[in-house]
């Protein structure tokens, strides 16, 4: 029979371990960041079509995650999707003429936003907008375009098919 003191200590350790595990689950596994806003700044970008992009999707430069999507809204006058990105404060110098595109990780993966930096000496600041955007590639649309182009270009049939395959 263990003494009450040892039992209490062990139960205390058990409780602490569970709390630590819960915190790990919250931040490492589910990426819960709403409690503690990470240091960073917001930029926005408007897209014609965001595909399957979701809030908390990642923002990457050269494949490295530098931030996340914090808000997706529709601009009622232009019917474009306005996406707010939060960029980590460690990544300060993104040129203003950079472009943002929505890409897919692998065939079945999530959508994410890739920022391609350009050469301007001016850098994006809090609440700036990225002008140059490329919408998500929608598989159905691509196939539709492909079939359409086959039907309407009898002379360059084989050429177009090759192009489509390359895409």
């Amino acid at each position: 029979m263990l003494s009450q003191r040892i039992i209490e200590t062990l139960v205390g350790i058990f409780l602490l371990a569970a709390i630590l595990a819960l915190i790990t689950l919250a931040f490492k596994v589910s990426g819960l960041t709403t409690f503690f806003k990470q240091e960073g700044y917001n930029i926005t970008a408007s897209f014609d079509d965001i595909g399957q992009l979701k809030v908390r999707g990642s923002v990457k430069i050269g494949g490295v995650t530098v931030g996340e999507v914090t808000k997706i809204a529709i601009d009622p006058s232009t019917y474009k999707a306005v996406v707010t990105l939060r960029i980590n404060s460690t990544v300060k110098d993104i040129p203003v003429d950079s472009s943002a595109s929505i890409l897919t990780a692998g065939l079945l993966g999530d959508n994410y936003i890739a920022i391609t930096p350009m050469y301007s000496k001016d850098f994006l600041k809090d609440n700036d907008e990225i002008e140059e955007t490329h919408s998500a590639m929608i598989l159905e649309k691509l196939i539709g375009q492909f079939l359409f182009s086959i039907g309407h270009s009898n002379d360059k049939n084989s050429d177009t098919a090759e192009k489509g395959a390359k895409q």
Binding site: L25, V29, S30, G31, L32, R56, G57, S58, D110
Partner: peptide
Amino acid sequence: AGAFWSNMQSSVEFHADI
């Protein structure tokens, strides 16, 4: 490792899942 954790983080929701 980075892909393992970041893909997990972007699809697991704290409230709905955990």
